[in-house]
């Protein structure tokens, strides 16, 4: 499963995935401790997709993402201290507290925006692809969005333009089967759309499309690599559907650690997984990946536990930094209305 990854790369991917999982868990616990964050969206269960795909990007590449952005920012190298600070509304946040969890963005890491409008980031990603092509840069624009975006008209307008003009864009649809109010019984995909397969929707536009298991880093890597190569070689856009299973704690607006904190030892001691959550953890990309590393002898339990402990310790420090950081000067609310 990690044929293209050497041991160091495999462990780096694990580190990113753990970083995202623990970051989100830490956020939920902070909210529970009484520190108000407002409503926010977590990336738990989707770590494989963002971590594997973003690891392939070059420094000049652009990303447009959504309200479910923490994982993408961290995978691209955002500093957890400044990201936590932004989410807590502190002056030290990446956006001086103006963006918050829904709009946290880091232009220096190639982020164009994080839009909380379903479908909002898609034309922005296409615009970045347009600009990249005009500027003659070997830059690819990747738009991350959920399956609900295929219910919005602007998605089709954007897909049409990207295809007509062969723009270097990757449409990365993260189908987490989670609509804002959950999934109706028996529906597939989780969105409310009159198609059996999301990828069928883009075929008539002449955009190559594939659906992969979003919890399988190798699968995500393979299709993303192909999409990036096609974009860089002038072949135009690609649509990828990365399927993940909805995390039970992802309630509509206020996530709860209903599955408890993830125990990486679930990977090698599955009996420790609480009975109520066995189905979810059986599909969890993080636990599956840890098991694969363990089985392939790329890492032993001690190394995995040590890495997890380091990530958690760093994040605890990052959260402390954010909690202790000062709020912005109220007068700064009026800064940056105009450039």
């Amino acid at each position: 499963m990690t044929s293209e990854l050497n041991q160091q790369e495999a462990m780096e991917l694990l580190r990113t995935m753990l970083l995202i999982r623990r970051f989100e868990e830490g956020l939920i616990q902070t909210q529970k401790s009484g520190i108000s964050i407002g409503h926010f969206h977590v990336y738990i269960g989707q770590e494989c997709t963002g971590a594997a795909a973003i690891a392939l990007l070059e420094p000049q590449d652009k990303i447009a993402t959504t309200h479910r952005n923490h994982g993408h920012l961290l995978a691209r190298g955002a500093d957890p201290r400044r990201l936590y600070a932004e989410i807590l509304g502190k002056a030290a946040g990446y956006n001086k507290g103006k963006g918050g969890t829904l709009h946290a963005t880091v232009a220096g890491l190639g982020f164009l925006s994080t839009s909380a409008l379903v479908g909002g980031a898609v034309p922005l990603a296409v615009g970045a692809g347009f600009a990249a092509k005009q500027l003659g840069e070997r830059c690819v624009s990747v738009g991350f969005f959920g399956d609900g975006v295929l219910e919005e008209g602007v998605f089709f307008e954007s897909l049409n333009m990207a295809s007509l003009w062969k723009l270097p864009v990757v449409f990365m649809c993260e189908n987490n089967s989670a609509g804002a109010l959950g999934q109706s019984a028996g529906e597939y995909p989780g969105s409310t759309i009159a198609t059996k397969q999301l990828i069928d929707v883009v075929a008539p536009f002449g955009v190559p499309a594939s659906a992969v298991d979003g919890g399988d880093p190798r699968a995500v890597r393979d299709v993303t690599q192909q999409a990036l190569a096609r974009a860089r070689n002038g072949g135009g856009p690609t649509f990828i559907e990365a399927r993940t299973v909805r995390w039970p704690g992802s309630r509509p607006l206020w996530p709860e650690l209903s599955t408890g904190e993830t125990d990486v030892a679930f990977a090698w001691e599955p009996d420790r997984i609480p009975m109520a959550h066995r189905d979810w953890f059986a599909n969890d990309g993080l636990i599956r990946y840890v098991r694969q590393l363990f089985d392939a002898k790329l890492a032993n339990t001690k190394e995995i536990l040590a890495l997890d402990a380091t990530v958690r310790a760093d994040l605890a420090k990052a959260m402390r930094f954010a909690i202790e950081a000062p709020y912005p000067d109220p007068a700064s609310a009026l800064d940056d209305v105009f450039a």
Binding site: G127, A132, E157, N160
Partner: peptide, 26 residues
């Protein structure tokens, strides 16, 4: 026509495309 660009009849995506391109420095 590289710089004077005809688009589909897609006002939402035109506005978004131009906004994304502007964020890139155009």
């Amino acid at each position: 026509e590289r710089r004077v660009v005809n688009t589909p009849i897609s006002e939402g995506a035109i506005m978004g495309l131009a906004t994304g391109a502007a964020a890139m420095g155009l």
